[in-house]
């Protein structure tokens, strides 16, 4: 079960990781080996087996539609890398 360098780059883009060339090389090898190991799940014929949706047999857990206190602004921005006024600032999206 090998994974190609191109696939690694594609996955890195999906995962939002700017990998260095070295990292891409290393991950291509490591992921290949790991996928080989975990790929044994393919040897089971499981067409009739339902996937586990949840480890706990519980349904209908919800909260009532009653407002709670929101965070004070000091807390909202306590860890913010970049704040402008009462907004979070990020570089342009395009």
């Amino acid at each position: 079960m090998a994974i190609s360098r191109d696939e690694v780059l594609h996955v890195a883009r999906l995962a939002r990781l700017a990998l260095t060339e070295d990292e891409v090389d290393r991950l291509t090898t490591e992921l290949g080996a790991i996928l080989e190991a975990v790929g044994v799940v393919a040897e089971l014929d499981l067409v009739d087996v339902p996937p586990t949706e949840h480890p706990l047999d519980v349904v209908n857990v919800w909260g009532e539609d009653e407002p709670h206190e929101s965070l004070p602004l000091d807390d909202v921005f306590a860890n913010a890398p970049a704040r402008e006024g009462d907004l979070f600032r990020v570089p342009p999206t395009v």
Binding site: R16, A18, N79, A80, P81, A82, V90, P91
Partner: peptide, 20 residues
């Protein structure tokens, strides 16, 4: 909103470099 941030010219660039 929190944690490390590596600045970049675009949002995508900032996120990818921060995570790397």
């Amino acid at each position: 909103r929190y944690g490390l941030r590596t600045e970049a010219d675009t949002y995508d660039g900032m996120v990818e470099r921060t995570r790397d």
